[in-house]
């Protein structure tokens, strides 16, 4: 998965129009990033990469880049 694919996945999670997330924003500023979106995000990452992310680490993430960092080497 590359960063663009990750952003598309994230847009799907928060039900945003394609192209609305640039990747440089803070998580707080993304409309629809709520508790359901977090669960949905965990599910999508599990499904596409087979990784179970820690909800605590997701909650600690401040930016889209922080979320990308959680996926580590699986993102290129």
């Amino acid at each position: 998965m590359n960063k663009q694919e990750f952003i598309v996945l994230l847009e799907g999670v928060v039900e945003a129009e394609p192209g609305t997330i640039t990747g440089n924003e803070t998580i707080e500023s993304i409309p629809g990033w709520d508790s359901l979106a977090i669960v949905s995000f965990i599910a999508m990452i599990d499904e596409s990469l087979g990784i179970t992310l820690s909800p605590k680490k997701i909650a600690d993430a401040k930016s889209v880049d922080d979320l990308v960092a959680l996926i580590g080497d699986n993102i290129i």
Binding site: S35, I42, D46, T52, L53, P55
Partner: peptide, 12 residues
């Protein structure tokens, strides 16, 4: 209920 934690637990 911490839904995200419960969900993660069930995934495993």
């Amino acid at each position: 209920m911490n839904g995200a934690e419960i969900f993660t637990f069930t995934l495993i």
